[in-house]
Design a protein around this nucleic acid. Structure first.
Lengths: 250, 250
DNA sequence: CGAATAGTGTCTTTAAGACACTATGTT
DNA sequence: AACATAGTGTCTTAAAGACACTATTCG
């Protein structure tokens, strides 16, 4: 049987009707990004207001930043995601991870469409530096966001939040939400904001310091009380995976 | 600015040149599945030999089962994956999980293409029952397989193996590789085959039995020695996530 | 009985949880 | 000095690792 033929030429049906051609309808292909940051002690996500030109679905609704893959400009999916991220935030090298893909006949009224969803973590310091005019940060409340989202973006957002919360239990991902220099209590606070749960100081410090992740710098954070040691991410800052989760959620 | 326009209508370029139309080139959209099973104490993956009609890329090479999304038949991506899985193996309700997507200008010589990859676990008992004529099981050796694979399928396969190995450290996924009835030593053996590492019997048993995953049945596995208690997956057999990995790989 | 595998128990180890305690700055 | 937060130490706890020991079947 022929291998990768078009629809209708698949296994079992119309044997012998080999068509190597590509003259069958193709789904729309988009990339969407869930961009997280921490502002005002709360997890925020970036949304974009949609236009209202003719034929635009979900006019004026909020949506995740994203759009069609441009086969002329985008070498691959990750490049497309990075391009869209940079267009909206100016950030060029954030933590970027593929989240999954969503595709169906009905999610876009214009026809069968599939989106490749990514999620990105950017530090608060970069979150407002070069924000696009149509983009806006929204705080997350109970895994959701106030405005009703276009397409199936509420579902995608929910998956992103779940993935983030889940990974924060056993990885160093929150480090990518921090500014260049930060203290351990500040990092712990970020963990706590994402997890919406307090963590044990001593266990947290032991875990972070024994991971090959951060290094102290010759500077302290001054405040009204005892100053705190400042740290920065090590150069080779690959995310660290710990062997256990934090609290075994009983 | 307009929201989800076609390529060229994105942020920043050609302002005012709004085009709500969809008259721009679309990538090819495919779904591929990495199907795992255990045979002869080794992890195997299902491959399909490609055809050699005109215009067929990678003629006669082996590839992951998959193919184009059929916008007329497939309601969504998961349905497309299930269809292709059933076509090749006859299995209708396996463990099926989205793996990720791979898309670029160069992975398919016919043009910009994106594939949505899934991975499935099926029991050995189902692995040969209704195998398609062009499909064949190959053992995994060092995260790879003997034949050179078409497209970027070697990369996808590698990602699938990594994901499986990783998840086996802290989940009950191998249970989906077992036949309906199995003993604890058999389940442990499956874990060991996937991880390519021996596990401690007592820790393994404690973990499995304290999870709400399997239940004993009123039957024993008879053999040349002491018989072993047979178990089956509980009805609500959602995968279990453990709070720790097995051996902390030092 | 001995061989072989199933299954249990006991002690150690690791890393987290609880929480007290010390350290160091500001006002 | 009072206070607030940074940072450490000590004891407990949960679950895994090591490994010996018992249990049950067959030949």
């Amino acid at each position: 049987m022929a291998g990768r033929q078009g629809p209708g030429g698949g296994a079992g049906d119309r044997p012998g009707a080999k068509r190597a051609g590509l003259d069958f309808p193709r789904p729309l292909t988009t990339v969407d990004i869930v961009i997280f940051t921490i502002r005002l002690e709360a997890l925020h996500v970036l949304l974009v207001r949609r236009g209202h030109g003719e034929g635009e679905p979900f006019p004026d609704a909020f949506a995740l930043p994203g759009g069609f893959v441009d086969v002329a400009r985008d070498a691959d999916l990750a490049a497309c995601a990075r391009r869209k991220l940079a267009e909206k935030t100016g950030v060029v090298s954030p933590y970027l991870e593929q989240l999954g893909s969503w595709g169906s006949a009905t999610r876009d009224p214009r026809g069968w469409s599939a989106t490749h969803a990514y999620f990105a973590l950017i530090p608060a310091s970069a979150a407002d530096a070069a924000l696009a005019a149509d983009a806006q940060w929204f705080p997350l409340q109970d895994d959701n966001v106030k405005p009703k989202l276009a397409f199936d973006h509420a579902e995608i957002l929910q998956a992103a939040v779940q993935r983030l919360r889940n990974k924060v239990e056993y990885t160093s991902l929150p480090a990518y939400l921090m500014p260049e220099e930060f203290t351990l209590p500040e990092l712990q606070r970020t963990y706590e904001v994402v997890l919406d749960r307090l963590l044990e100081k001593s266990a947290f410090r032991t875990r972070m310091l024994s991971a090959d992740l951060i290094e102290p710098i010759a500077k302290m954070r001054k405040g009204p009380n005892r100053p705190a040691q400042l740290y920065r991410l090590k150069k080779k800052a690959a995310p660290v995976y710990f062997a256990r989760t934090f609290n075994a959620p009983e």
